[in-house]
Design a binder for these strands. Structure first.
Lengths: 247, 247
DNA sequence: CGGAGTATTGAGGCGCTTCAAAGGCGGTGG
DNA sequence: CCACCGCCTTTGAAGCGCCTCAATACTCCG
């Protein structure tokens, strides 16, 4: 796990699960130039308003997309774990939009946009798959909106943990009931629109109700049904595998 | 304005502004079958969890994407005005995801997904353009997250009005300082994560500071700079026209 | 002219923020 | 190796923003 080839294969595998790809397509994707870069935590991969000629594939660690408010606070809009490409949308619109930052020590691969465009140009199926991948990302964004707009702190936190758990499981990094969340309470606050203080109190409440236990950066879910209930969590929305739908 | 052909041409025009399309591409898009349907307000075009074999092009009125919470409340995640396709993402992933509802009396065109897929298959440039359009939609979603997670009610409302204003202007429906917002305060509340009561008070505050004036469903912006300041609004993020970037 | 949805306003309560302070943990240098 | 420092976590107390409950008026439509 957490090697350059693992990350690329993991990504391509999930891409193929989303949208049909030929063996040639897969070979072309796996042949993309891949030089890993190691970065410390709280490092801006892409600063706000900045352009960037690469897409960012996460190899290990945790990366967040964010948008900065005028008073300096930042709102995270997405978390990306190993095997994810954080900004595939850049292939469609080079437009700046959001910034990109590491949460903990992280290694990434910078994939040149021109190479991604080239493989997409060579094979329409790859473009379709990229778009499908981006569409899932957008579905997560929509859920994030619901989480911030419609739920209180406890429910919001529970939903967030459910999402990270299921995505960890899908990425083969752990299970939904035991996974790593390598983010500080302050960073979680920037994701959930809460102050660090209240994140702490909210987690405390979830621990006391035995919904979760936290051991360092490892989250153990005591009772998945109860956590999902508290968070009003519906697994379906991040069901990335279209083949399951057909079955 | 607000005819079937106007809506389709408006959409295709903005699509072409986003991503280069040939004359053949444009002809193929304009030749899509287009039978308009008139719908009353608060009508579910796509109910939560339901599949749907069409994409929805708005001809007149206002359409919102939403996700329902378990207690029956709904959170709007996007507004769509005449000339917009509300759920182009369905072409990439037929997955349910979000529901679709009219806010006021609305006429739409239902575009069969299979036809949209067919034109995309015939021309990669069209698929690229669809994806770029969806990517802009996702950028709006990210801003919506920031709005809910990072701003208080007044700022949130101001930002929302700025977004609707600029998009109305871009769609040729009005100007950013005078536009129609055909939604009730309760519906605006479902978009901003506020109660109708607080929407009312927030609007009252904006009126009293002369930032806006409301006349029926017409919003007049008294001072655009001050509204943009209150809402911490940055025009760039919904700059849909890539050709401007090059210039 | 009656009824339903919408807008408006008031009063009180709760959830989250702000401010403040103390303890834990890992990293770094003497 | 330990002492120190910065960051993170944890907890308390007070305040404010938004919600809830409630009542009245307005507007559109049948």
């Amino acid at each position: 796990m957490f090697s350059t080839t693992w990350a690329l294969e993991n990504f391509v595998g999930r891409l193929a699960a989303l949208s049909p790809l030929s063996q040639d397509d897969i070979r072309a994707l796996l042949a993309l130039p891949a030089e890993p870069v190691r970065l410390r935590g709280n490092f801006d991969i892409v600063s706000p308003g900045e352009g960037f000629d690469y897409a960012c594939l996460v190899v290990s660690g945790l990366v967040a997309r964010y948008i900065q408010l005028s008073d300096g606070r930042r709102q995270f809009t997405a978390f990306h774990m190993p095997g994810d490409i954080a900004d595939i949308h850049r292939v469609a619109t080079p437009l700046a939009g959001s910034a990109l930052q590491t949460l903990s020590t992280t290694t990434i691969i910078r994939l040149p946009l021109k190479d991604l465009k080239a493989v997409g140009l060579a094979s329409p199926a790859i473009t379709q798959a990229f778009w499908a991948y981006a569409a899932v990302d957008a579905a997560l964004l929509a859920q994030w909106v619901v989480n911030l707009g419609g739920r209180d702190a406890t429910s919001r936190m529970a939903h967030f943990l459910c999402e990270i758990g299921v995505r960890s499981e899908q990425a083969g990094l752990g299970s939904r009931t035991e996974f790593v969340l390598d983010a500080s309470q302050s960073q979680i606050g920037d994701a959930l629109g809460l102050t660090p203080v209240h994140v702490n109190r909210t987690l405390k409440a979830l621990k006391q109700s035995n919904a979760i236990a936290v051991d360092g950066r490892i989250v153990r879910v005591g009772s998945w049904p109860s956590l999902a209930m508290i968070g009003d969590f519906d697994v379906d929305y991040l069901q990335r595998d279209q083949r399951q739908e057909a079955a």
